[in-house]
């Protein structure tokens, strides 16, 4: 009688493929330009700054905390007003204290989430919209000259929207008591990041 094999075939195969996955391949560097470069550049722009990321996630978190209809009004309002700010940035219209405004956005929105602040919807929309102008201005003004403007705009709007969705997804935990605490802790963390950036700008 054959001895039953002790080898787990799927597991072995998986491990082998895992090893294959980590094999180093030659990097095929190529110049990034044109349509794809514009999209990549725009998509990565909101993801390369912690101040941007925390504020975007905070918008989603706060929206989820406030519940329907704020949960979807805020992520609809934010990109449109942000694009308005972006347009001002592109056209070279100066807005004072953009970086400070961005840092403040993380601080204030983080505090709103941490303390579960529940203002009327229009107040929340005005707060979020005001900060959106600063974020948009930074995106517009910092667009690389080599990038394709059209795909840059599409990329950064999509990245911003996805960050909101991350915030909303995390914020949906508020339906459980432990989740509510977790979301509020997230708000504290965002506020601290915002405070750090604000402190940095003030002391610089």
């Amino acid at each position: 009688m054959n001895k039953p094999s002790t080898v787990n075939r799927p597991a072995t195969l998986s491990l082998l493929l895992l090893g294959l996955w980590f094999l180093p391949l030659t990097a095929s560097a190529h110049q990034e330009k044109g349509t794809v470069w514009g999209f990549t550049s725009g998509f990565l722009h909101p993801l390369t700054g912690l101040d941007h990321i925390t504020a975007m996630v905070a918008v989603g978190l706060w929206g989820a905390f406030l519940g329907v209809p704020a949960m979807w009004v805020l992520p609809v309002v934010f990109p449109v007003v942000m694009a308005f700010g972006g347009a001002l940035g592109v056209l070279g219209a100066p807005i004072p204290g953009v970086e400070t405004g961005i840092a403040l956005s993380s601080l204030i929105l983080g505090i709103c989430v941490a303390f579960a602040v529940r203002p009327p919807l229009w107040v929340a929309a005005v707060i979020v919209g005001t900060f959106a102008i600063f974020h948009g201005h930074a995106h517009g003004a910092e667009m690389p000259h080599a990038a394709n403007a059209m795909t840059y705009a599409i990329g950064f709007v999509i990245a911003t929207g996805l960050l909101h969705l991350c915030g909303i997804a995390f914020g949906l935990l508020v339906r459980w008591p432990w989740g509510k605490k977790l979301v509020r802790v997230g708000g504290v963390a965002i506020a601290l990041v915002g405070f750090g950036f604000l402190f940095h700008f003030i002391s610089a």
């Binding site: 309002v77 347009a87 929207g161």
Partner: peptide
């Protein structure tokens, strides 16, 4: 769908600004 609409609006607004600048 409405969020998708807001993304289209935002991207269009930005692109219009780029076109105006040029």
């Amino acid at each position: 769908l409405r969020v998708a609409g807001s993304w289209i609006t935002a991207a269009s607004l930005m692109i219009l600004a780029f076109a105006l600048r040029h």
